[in-house]
Design a protein around this nucleic acid. Structure first.
Lengths: 350, 350
DNA sequence: GCACACTTTTACATCGATGTAAATACCTCG
DNA sequence: CGAGGTATTTACATCGATGTAAAAGTGTGC
């Protein structure tokens, strides 16, 4: 009942050296069955547990990876964090969840391991740092980007095909007879950044049907929260030619939009159809239930953790030579599937 | 540009001993201003950063605390985690978020620091472990409980006054003319556990008006998710004498309930009023907006972190003796405020 | 000029686990 | 039975920072 036992204590009790105990703990191949049994008996008897501080110091690897998301109480990132934590656990790694608050300095400091060498690697869902910033920033740590950042070839990244997803969502709205579709949270359709890519998919879908995109219907959002969705929607409704559909670039915007529509006495989906992205839980229970693009979140999480774990394990190789090359051959990109879930908010054709 | 600099390198560059560098880093009192300046210059020039593995090993304290919640994608816990992380950051501690999935073994292992001595302490939001289990379980780590566990005097805990909160919520419904109030997620009103305490407050409010509580209207929930709220509500509606109000013991249950009411063609609040607990974001934007008991979450987080930090720091002093591992001779209990936010889901009197 | 008290700095050991390389045990076969 | 090889085990150094205790430096008063 005194202090925690150490390897030394286990070794003494089992009558072997400390290194042998270590070998047993780490599943080294050359340990005789009898010896192993004796050590295991001692471990159990003393209730020994590895001291991670010692191991970390010696191995130079803490077993901790950081997950950096804009904000946890955005439903999407909470769900994702949930999944990442579970996946990391399966690989016996621990996750440190860090919130960037969409601030660039915080994202940068995360890439650097928060000014310490506490973490082995970082999974970052970038928001404030754009493509160029990411490209330029040299992290000493393995990094996996979560979400679309197409040109950041220096880093591994995992995402859905945002262009295709937005195209499908738009086609669905067009099929329902909608003609004036506003893009809530949209941005000029450049080939970079999630919002830009989704807007681009939208524009492509219109073009494919010979329709011109109306840039006045693309409304950027400062944040991707309910309140922004509500505010943008209220503004749209107050204009001369209000839209008959809203392509909201995430579910929170969509839920805020639906609330604003309700307040304005506009019926969903009869008067205005609404589609979101992310498939967060509240959208499944809202009234009306929200049509949304559902990314394969479990796979997103699994692939992100896998890529990072591999990078951490293989870090030795890249330390020396690879530096200096702008286009690293190792930067893997994984595209994960998505599904358009058609629910009540867009189900009725006009 | 090779490896990370160590204290050794800083010491060499500044022309002092390693210990002096350490003294500067740790703000020791006896360092001459000139020496300090020289060391700081060297630190800046080399880009030195403390290696936490070394510090952890030496100090026996990692600076990491664990937050254990049932599930992150329950909106309430994501919001709470958000706040706890920020608060811990202010105190320069790092938070490890762990999900118990409401499983007893996982909660127990958390109390033990996950089988390692990686974390300095634990903030636990217990769900699976009841009072007696908590009372019996001897943790080697400082623990702060988040949420109501009245008899667990061995551990510090932080919570709102659940009995009073439920009483107020019930009074509000009674004031609105409701007479058959179902308690969704309720349990027999024992003096322990959040659900039990809230049920108790409800019963007390009824009694105070000379009304008897109808035990058949108290419906326990397996989990506190949307689907459980929806299922329980659907069942209630199918019965001979359906309720005219739902006191849902958290917002998710309430949101699920509202969805079920909508599906059944029942109007909220005209036919049935709904009240929840937690004040999570989706309830603010639901249609109708959800009346709810809002705990002072920022203070909840602040106090939890404060209590734990104090316990961890207090432990340092006792290192020498290290006899009986008993933390906090007087387990502190902090009660945090709450507010009943009356919104649309209960606003119209009958 | 020197004893004494106080401030600042240092050498060294230590926290616990594990890689390295060398030592020892074990086994096979001529 | 011993050479030669493989399988196991060990002693020791090391990862990086910091507590301890002692050394070195500074200053004061007589």
């Amino acid at each position: 009942m005194g202090d925690r036992p150490r390897i030394r204590d286990v070794a003494r009790r089992a009558g072997v050296s400390e290194k042998t105990v270590s070998n047993v703990i780490n599943d080294h191949p050359h340990v005789r069955a009898r010896t192993r049994a004796a050590v295991e008996e001692a471990i159990a008897a003393l209730g020994y547990r590895v001291n991670l501080a010692g191991r970390h110091l010696r191995r130079g690897e803490s077993g901790v990876i950081a997950l950096v998301v804009p904000e946890l109480d955005l439903g999407y990132f909470a769900e994702l964090a949930d999944l990442v934590i579970r996946e990391a656990e399966r690989r016996s790694r621990t996750v440190l969840v860090h919130q960037s608050e969409a601030r660039r300095t915080r994202e940068e400091s995360a890439l650097d391991g928060f000014g310490t060498d506490f973490v082995d690697g970082v999974i970052l869902s970038p928001l404030a740092m754009d493509d160029d910033a990411l490209q330029a920033y040299r992290s000493r740590l393995p990094v996996v980007l979560l979400g679309e950042v197409p040109r950041a070839v220096r880093h591994a990244h995992v995402a859905i095909d945002n262009v295709a997803a937005a195209r499908e969502a738009t086609e669905h709205l067009l099929d329902g007879g909608r003609t004036r579709i506003a893009v809530v949270g949209g941005r000029p359709p450049r080939p970079s950044g999630t919002a830009e890519l989704r807007t681009r998919g939208h524009v492509e879908a219109l073009r494919a049907r010979g329709m011109a995109a109306d840039p006045t219907l693309v409304r950027p959002a400062r944040e991707f929260h309910w309140r922004d969705g509500a505010a943008l929607t209220a503004a749209l409704l107050a204009e001369a030619r209000p839209p008959d559909a809203l392509l909201c670039l995430n579910d929170l915007l969509a839920l805020g939009a639906m609330r604003a529509l309700h307040d304005a006495g506009v019926r969903v989906p009869e008067d205005v159809a609404v589609v979101g992205f992310d498939d967060i839980a509240p959208g499944r229970y809202s009234v009306p239930a929200l049509t949304t693009v559902a990314p394969d979140k479990p796979r997103l999480a699994r692939e992100a953790v896998r890529l990072l774990a591999e990078a951490v394990e293989g870090r030795r190789d890249t330390t020396g030579a690879a530096s200096g090359r702008e286009f690293g051959p190792s930067a893997s990109k994984v595209v994960v599937g998505h599904t358009l879930l058609i629910r009540e908010s867009s189900s009725t054709a006009r």
